[in-house]
Amino acid sequence: MALPQPIRKRLDDFSRNIFIDQSRAQQKPEEHDAFFGHKTQVVSSLPLQMSLCFNMWFFPLWWISEVVMLHLKYPALPDYYKFILVTVLIMMTLIEAIRLYLGYAGNLQEKVPELAGFWLLSILLQFPLILFQLFNEAILIQPLERGVHIVLAAFLLIQALSGFVALREMVRHTESQFHLRQFD
């Protein structure tokens, strides 16, 4: 399942504007080798992929612990926090499923728009939500919750940093391939 074309185009344009180093005028020797058929360059990020894999296995544990803790503290919460926490749990579950899919597709298939979508979801939505749950003492944070939130926040931080590096390399590689194909 691929992203719709308008979304792909916008994410592709966004990532090209943000992640391309304009001062780089010369091509790397590896890019010349790829053009002449000597070798192909893999630009997928191993640290990002490892983090995504660990996160995929950790997320169900996070979800189960979050549901159990929410069930235990639900009667003691004010009504507005009940609504907020249930909404945050549903949003984080949906966002995490989409985010992990985009991360896998973007990294393994070396697709810039998917990886840019993954990175934006991580930074703009998932990270603020986990920080809200980690630092808002009014929601009666339990020790188990604090522990799993710290682990998920660490995964998000690692993925944001390694995703930025991977996205930058993918955009550079795609840009060089585009320029090399102009000579065909």
Rank of each mutant, 00 (worst) to 15 (best):
M1F: 09
L3Y: 03
P4N: 10
Q5V: 15
P6Y: 06
R10L: 14
D12Y: 09
D13L: 15
F19K: 02
I20K: 05
I20A: 04
D21V: 01
D21C: 10
Q22F: 07
S23T: 15
Q27N: 10
K28D: 15
K28Q: 12
K28H: 14
P29M: 09
P29C: 08
E30A: 13
F35I: 01
F36K: 14
T40L: 11
T40F: 11
V42W: 04
V43L: 07
V43K: 00
S44D: 13
S45V: 03
P47E: 06
L48D: 07
L48G: 02
Q49F: 09
L52H: 02
F59A: 04
F59T: 03
L61E: 05
W62F: 15
W63S: 12
E66G: 08
V67I: 15
L70T: 03
K73M: 05
A76C: 07
D79Q: 13
Y81H: 11
K82Q: 13
I84A: 14
V86K: 06
V86H: 04
V88P: 01
L89D: 03
L89M: 14
L89F: 13
L89W: 06
M91S: 11
M92Y: 02
T93C: 04
I95C: 04
I95M: 08
I95F: 11
E96Y: 06
E96K: 07
R99F: 01
L100F: 07
Y101W: 13
G103D: 03
Y104C: 04
Y104E: 02
G106V: 00
N107H: 00
L108D: 06
Q109W: 03
A116P: 01
G117N: 00
G117R: 00
W119G: 02
L121W: 00
S122T: 11
I123L: 14
F127Y: 12
E137Y: 12
A138K: 10
A138P: 06
I141T: 05
I141P: 00
Q142S: 13
P143D: 11
E145M: 09
E145G: 07
G147A: 08
G147Q: 09
G147S: 11
V148G: 04
V148F: 13
H149D: 08
F155Q: 01
L156T: 08
L156S: 11
L157R: 01
I158L: 14
L161R: 07
F164I: 04
V165D: 15
V165E: 14
L167D: 07
M170A: 05
V171S: 01
H173V: 07
E175H: 14
Q177F: 05
F178E: 14
R181A: 10
F183T: 13
